[in-house]
């Protein structure tokens, strides 16, 4: 496998979680994307073939460094930029795993039934209130709530439910239970 194909594969696999990971430091989406893209550009420019054993670890570490350097440059502060920047979270001690979880949530949202997906996205991605969604789609507010409820049920079952044999996110079951 050519080195560029290996990096391309790593890109497909890790790009989304890396962006979410970068967002834990830099709050701007464009800057976060920029940080991640810079890491891949550097990776392509490096031509030390075969040295990186663990691309996942390498990429997350590089994005982290890239973000911290960016913050140091823009704020001049250097001390308080380490992990303390990332807020404590209920389930995930590891911000990398959290980013991967979020990325998986994104993929699953795409698998919702079309009507449910549309309503859920209008709420979560576009920031519309349930009343606004109801008006826009000419449905009742109660229906909007019901669809969001369905979406949450679907996602939780896929992500967390031990009894669900189809749970595709088995790697997190270890972590969470």
């Amino acid at each position: 496998m050519r080195i560029q194909d290996i990096i391309s594969k790593a890109f497909k696999e890790h790009y989304a979680p890396l962006i979410l990971y970068a967002l834990k430091w830099v709050k701007d989406e464009d800057i976060a994307k920029d940080m991640v893209q810079t890491v891949f550009i550097n990776l392509l420019e490096r031509s030390d073939e075969g040295i990186i054993k663990d691309y996942r670890a390498y990429l997350f570490q590089s994005v982290r460094n890239q973000c911290i350097n960016k913050l140091k440059k823009s704020s001049g502060k250097t001390d308080q930029l380490e992990e303390s920047q990332i807020k404590e979270h209920g389930y995930f001690n590891d911000p990398i795993e959290e980013a991967e979880f979020e990325s998986y949530v994104f993929n699953l949202i795409d698998k919702l039934p079309p009507a449910t997906k549309n309503i859920f996205k209008l709420n979560r991605f576009e920031g519309l209130s349930n009343q606004e969604i109801a008006d826009k789609l000419n449905i009742s507010k109660r229906t909007v709530e019901l669809q969001i409820s369905n979406a949450l049920k679907f996602l939780r079952e896929k992500l967390f439910d031990q009894d669900n044999q189809n749970s595709t996110y088995s790697q997190f079951l270890f972590l969470l239970f």
């Binding site: 497909k12 979880f101 990325s103």
Partner: peptide
């Protein structure tokens, strides 16, 4: 707790909504 986790995550991932793997690669 899991529902809340999903609720928050589903808002954060709006950063990915315009992502285009091929174009960005």
């Amino acid at each position: 707790e899991q529902y809340i986790e999903i609720w928050n995550a589903s808002n954060k991932v709006k950063a990915l909504k315009n992502i285009s793997y091929e174009a960005e690669w």
